[in-house]
Design a protein around this nucleic acid. Structure first.
Length: 355
DNA sequence: AAGTCGGGGTT
DNA sequence: AACCCAGACTT
């Protein structure tokens, strides 16, 4: 078995040495840069994350520069990438590094896990790649690759199933350059051992792969969890005042936390009074309430049924979470907004300029 | 252990 | 439509 595993390890390393993609975080390596790349790539594909990585390290080349930035600027750089808690946690972690680690980014698994937003996967990735700590990573690619290779029948979205995969991955991990091997497993899962239309013909593991030998490649990885998608009605009010459009920062436990939205309520019944009550503002409106459009915005666990309304008015007093943005500044504004709002601004605000 | 959190791509 | 992506946090 040991010899068997050594062969698998070496075959994968050989494959990686001639098939590794050239990616921006694979040069000028540092714990900081690897950290940025790993967090961006959480639940995010490489092609989507690449440009975000370049912009992020260009604006924040060091952990200190990130720590002293304002959160809204960090979120603005993250805009469009989703899972915005990653950006908020990174900002908090940067401050932790400055305060608790004297500004030097930690490189050991245990220390890394003490930072906000760094769990088992990210700590193992950074520790193995930067300081050659022999800890195996388990991400979506590894779950698929290992569960197929060894025919893991246990559900990988259970604690026991994940542990089984982790143990297999750890058993394959070489003591020399464990980070390279971790990257190789993920690269193989991303390029060859893909979810559908896996490239099993001429696969370098076709003779040893349990799933392939059983002709059950797509039975793995076993998952039991099925995602439930709930619907959520949101009625946004676009208030055009003489000083600009009214935006509100999401501060509740609701999603899109700390991003900016138009003020909204869940029901169109008594919309204006609902807004006035919810945000406790003295909104002086004039003219008619006009429905601009309906938009169905699909998220992973939610279907947002959005309706955008507009009205002209004025806000005599504003609280700290309110902001007015001039119509002419909308396209270059500094406040972070989710994709739903960004799409609305790009698709419908030109019409409003003509109103 | 289960629920929550975005957005884009593939099939 | 359903599933997946270099997952982590809260309850």
């Amino acid at each position: 078995m040991v010899q068997y595993n050594n062969n698998i390890t070496q075959i994968l390393l050989d494959w990686f040495s001639s098939n590794a993609r050239i990616l921006p975080w694979r040069k000028n390596r540092s714990a900081y840069r690897v950290w940025v790349s790993e967090v961006i790539l959480q639940q995010t594909q490489v092609v989507q994350g690449e440009q975000y990585f370049n912009r992020f390290v260009s604006r924040f080349p060091t952990v200190e520069s990130l720590a002293i930035a304002g959160e809204h600027e960090v979120l603005k750089l993250w805009q469009g990438l989703g899972y915005y808690s990653r950006a908020r946690n990174m900002h908090a972690a940067a401050k932790q590094v400055v305060e608790c680690f004297d500004g030097k980014f930690p490189e050991e698994f245990k220390a890394l896990k003490s930072l906000k937003g760094i769990g088992d996967y990210t700590a193992a990735a950074i520790a193995s790649i930067v300081s050659a700590e022999p800890v195996a990573v388990v991400d979506g690619n590894v779950l698929r690759f290992i569960s197929r290779l060894f025919g893991v029948e246990e559900a990988v979205d259970s604690a026991i199933g994940k542990k089984i995969v982790k143990n297999f991955a750890q058993s394959l991990l070489p003591k020399a350059n464990p980070g390279t091997f971790n990257e190789a497993m993920m690269e193989f899962g991303a390029l060859k051992c893909v979810p559908r239309n896996a490239q099993c013909d001429n696969c370098i593991f076709s003779d040893v792969c349990s799933a392939k030998r059983q002709n059950r490649v797509y039975d793995f990885p076993v998952r039991r969890h099925k995602t439930k998608v709930s619907e959520r009605e949101m009625h946004f009010l676009v208030v055009e005042t003489s000083k600009g459009i009214w935006f509100e920062k999401q501060t509740s436990r609701d999603f899109w936390k700390n991003m900016y939205l138009f003020p909204f309520v869940d029901s169109s019944n008594a919309l204006l009074n609902g807004i006035i009550d919810k945000y406790n503002v003295d909104l002086k409106f004039e003219g008619e309430l006009v429905k601009v459009c309906n938009v169905n915005h699909i998220l992973t666990h939610r279907k947002v049924l959005a309706t955008f309304w507009k009205i002209e008015g004025d806000l005599p007093e504003m609280h700290s979470n309110s902001i007015l943005v001039k119509v002419t500044d909308l396209k270059s504004m500094e406040i972070p907004v989710p994709k739903l709002i960004d799409n609305f601004l790009r698709n419908y605000m030109p019409d409003m300029e003509n109103c």
